[in-house]
Simulated assay, not measured.
Amino acid sequence: MNAFEAVFLAHTAAPSGAELATLRLVSAMPAGSTAVVYTEDGPMLRLMAERGIETRVVRNGFDSRTMTIDKAGVRSLLVGATGLLRLGWTLGATVRELEATVLVAGSTKAMLMGAVAARRAGVPLVWHVHDRVSRDYFGRALALIIRVLGWVVARGVIANSRGTLASLYTWRRRAVVAYPGVEFPAGDESVEFAGDSGILGDARPQGQRPATETVIAVVGRLAPWKGQDLFLRALADVRTLPREVFLVGGTFFDEQSYRAELEMHATALGLPVTFTGHVDDPESYLRHADILVHCSVLPEPFGQVVVEGMRAGCAVIATRPGGPEEIIDPGVNGLLVTAGNRAELTRALDRLIADRELRAKLADAARLRSRDFDVAASARTVTNFLTGLPGKRWRRG
């Protein structure tokens, strides 16, 4: 059996942003030196297997959906944490069996489980943080509890942005920022995607479409904090409606009613919106669109879809504060608007829809900027970080 250096722990096998970022990361790390352990079955196991990544499932009776940390109170968090800690003891045996020398927890729930698992396996725990630990997301009390727990149990921290890192306690702890990277075909220097758009029909022209033919995409989970409702209201106020708008993304848990609300708004406002539902890979929609809109109303931890849209040649509008500020140079490779400001978003949409040349200029610069977020660079950062943990050895493959 292979001896793995780094085992990544995930509490969910649903293909959401953090899990897909982990897929790309471990794929780019030294071959044979990583494994991923899930606490439930799901699509991520198939995606990992397709890339030859060793995966394990530790089946259990604990349903992580009963502990929605961002909505729970302190008492609910403590009750749910008890179940996670019990599960962590079981996970410890798997981590030890895999002969790991470091355990990397990819979420707050995984961090709680991982604290026990790492202790039982006798390996250091690293917390890979994909969410800003702030009161905006968790509430004041929970954010404080999570920060303190992370500081106590984790030997090191990997954050997905400088903003995320700033939301943590890192005193006397090793810490590094590793952006969620995007993948580029080997030898591809053009960052250009040739060919048609498949099921979408006509691909985006070499430049950009005329104003009345513009296509807009909004990519992300359909959730109130992602701001799709604000986008629809802002879009209703533009001077020239685009030809097509794609809202690409599914719903989790109790968010189905939000999709129904969005559909009602789109119909009432007479907007040319198509709801695609969950899409494993939104690249074809990004290649088809002229404009990508990122419209989170809370500070985004990073915003990897912003980089994906830039790579695909979209002119991007994104919100600040948050991760997009670390990606976009406003007016050079994209536009930034204030989160939650409908009038600003409408003005940015009007500006891009009307100005085909500006869209092309921003898109060209965006392709070049996306190169700075190559997952190969992120993998080197993470590998070097894990290598440097006190008492660690790293077998390079």
Rank of each mutant, 00 (worst) to 15 (best):
I327Q: 05
E19S: 09
R367I: 04
R233E: 14
K71G: 02
P324K: 08
G114K: 03
A363I: 03
G106V: 07
L78K: 04
L112N: 01
L389Q: 00
A363S: 15
A318N: 09
G397W: 00
A10L: 13
V177Q: 04
A234F: 02
T274E: 10
V129G: 11
R356W: 07
T101F: 00
P390M: 00
V177K: 08
A110H: 02
D254W: 14
V279C: 03
M111F: 02
I317F: 05
R396G: 00
E192N: 11
G322H: 06
A376Y: 00
F275W: 09
H130I: 07
P15I: 03
R243D: 11
T22A: 05
V307R: 08
R75L: 14
A211M: 09
R209W: 09
V126Y: 05
V375L: 01
L345K: 11
A203Y: 01
K392M: 05
G73E: 08
A339P: 13
T39M: 12
M29F: 09
N341Q: 13
L235C: 07
R56F: 05
S197F: 04
E183F: 10
V116S: 13
V37W: 06
Y258P: 02
A175L: 05
Y179P: 11
T22E: 06
V248N: 04
R155F: 06
K392Y: 00
S76T: 14
N341V: 12
E300M: 03
L230I: 09
F253N: 14
R243A: 15
E326N: 09
R243G: 12
E99L: 06
M310V: 07
